[in-house]
């Protein structure tokens, strides 16, 4: 089963997200390495902060309306890092998630675990 681990930085209400600090990046790098060592990591990455993100508005098919820079309070806005893992159960995904170390020091607010759709649930 594939799960997306969405690691969100702690943010005060209304605060703009900042780029991940070196502590965050190093902790995630080492954590991803452990996932890799366990043979469960498929992909990982860190997202540039929401303030440099772009929103593409959707009108009718194929017509994009406005393109807006900077995101705040929208889906994925506060996700700083992600890891896509392939594990045997939801509980295993949770166990991995709670093993992210130094969450207080690096400023993790929340980890959201989302299960990736499998055929035939996709279309």
């Amino acid at each position: 089963m594939r799960f997306m681990l969405l690691v969100k930085a702690r943010q005060a209400a209304g605060e703009t997200a900042k780029p991940p600090n070196p502590d965050w990046l190093e902790t995630m790098r080492s954590y991803n390495d452990r996932l890799e060592q366990a043979g469960v990591l498929l992909a990982s990455g860190h997202l540039h902060p929401a303030s440099s993100g772009i929103r593409i508005g959707c009108g009718a098919y194929g017509d994009s309306t406005d393109i807006e820079e900077g995101l705040r309070g929208k889906a994925g806005a506060d996700v700083a890092s992600f890891a896509l893992v392939d594990v045997r159960s939801k509980e295993e995904a949770i166990e991995w998630a709670v093993r992210l170390p130094d969450v207080g020091r690096i400023g993790v607010g929340e980890i959201e675990l989302r299960r990736v759709k499998e055929m035939p649930d996709i279309f």
């Binding site: 498929l42 997202l47 772009i54 593409i56 508005g57």
Partner: peptide, 26 residues
């Protein structure tokens, strides 16, 4: 991102585009 078919049945909504820091998979 502009070319993505509108994924929202109601016809409105937005897609968000965020750049990924280079993080090698292997």
């Amino acid at each position: 991102a502009r070319r993505m078919p509108n994924p929202y049945p109601s016809g409105e909504g937005s897609i968000e585009l965020r750049q990924i820091f280079e993080a090698p998979e292997i």
